[in-house]
């Protein structure tokens, strides 16, 4: 239970007590007119003035409570880096996203480079992926590197614009080797050619290591 939970609990208790008090303190008014009616009106006017004063005081209290709520929220330790950011954060620019992609790729490459090739899974998966690329048969696709080690595969392609880069990637998905969980980044070379970096994970359930927060 954190502080906000306690506020909620105390508030509920307050409402319950108040409700009970009101039921006892405010019996059903007499319906029969009586000579005491004018005095009742005066009493209500007095109540109105008091209520206005109470409301003014409560508005101040509300402000203070909201300030406290804000301080409590700010003081909370986030359970993950993502939760520490609010929805009104400015969206990252395309350039910032490209930078993040490069960092993530670099991290995956470091992992892969540190691995020793599994003598069975590595060559077998490379062969499967290569076969899928060849049978897909797009003359505008050039393979710049294909490597599978122990838990990861790395594939780099360039696809000329006339080769429909996005359609090509779609066409490869689900083919043998490309059924593994993975990630693709598409970066544009200065001449307009699309360079695609693909990483595939051996672990079908776990997928790739998470990118940096």
């Amino acid at each position: 239970m954190n502080a906000r939970h306690w506020i909620g609990v105390v508030a509920l208790c307050g409402l319950s007590v108040a409700g009970a008090e009101l039921l006892r303190a405010d019996p059903v008014p007499p319906t029969t007119p009586s000579v005491a009616a004018p005095a009742r009106t005066v009493e209500l006017r007095t109540d109105d003035a008091q209520t206005d004063a109470l409301w003014a005081r409560l508005r101040r209290l509300e402000g203070e409570l909201r300030d406290t709520e804000g301080e409590l929220h700010a003081a909370e330790v986030p359970s993950s880096a993502g939760e520490a950011q609010m929805s009104d954060e400015p969206l990252p620019s395309p350039e910032e996203l490209a930078e993040r992609r490069a960092i993530y790729r670099s991290q995956l490459e470091d992992i892969l480079d540190a691995e020793t090739q599994d003598p069975t899974w590595g060559p077998q998966t490379e062969s499967t992926i290569d076969e899928s690329l060849r049978t897909f048969g797009n003359e505008h696709v050039t393979v710049h590197g294909l490597e599978c080690r122990a838990t990861l595969c790395r594939l780099e392609l360039t696809i000329a614009e006339e080769g429909d880069p996005m359609g090509t990637m779609d066409g490869l998905m689900g083919r043998p080797g490309f059924t593994l969980p993975g990630m693709a980044n598409m970066e544009t070379d200065p001449d307009g050619t699309e360079r695609v970096f693909v990483f595939l994970a051996r672990d079908a359930e776990g997928g790739l290591p998470q990118p940096p927060a």
Binding site: W6, G8, L15, A25
Partner: peptide, 24 residues
């Protein structure tokens, strides 16, 4: 007693406004 009840009720509602939704 009545005044106290009103104060309690409004404070309770205010508390729910601030604490209730966040808690749930």
């Amino acid at each position: 007693t009545k005044r106290s009840s009103i104060v309690l009720a409004v404070l309770g509602a205010l508390g729910l406004l601030v604490g209730g939704p966040t808690a749930s």
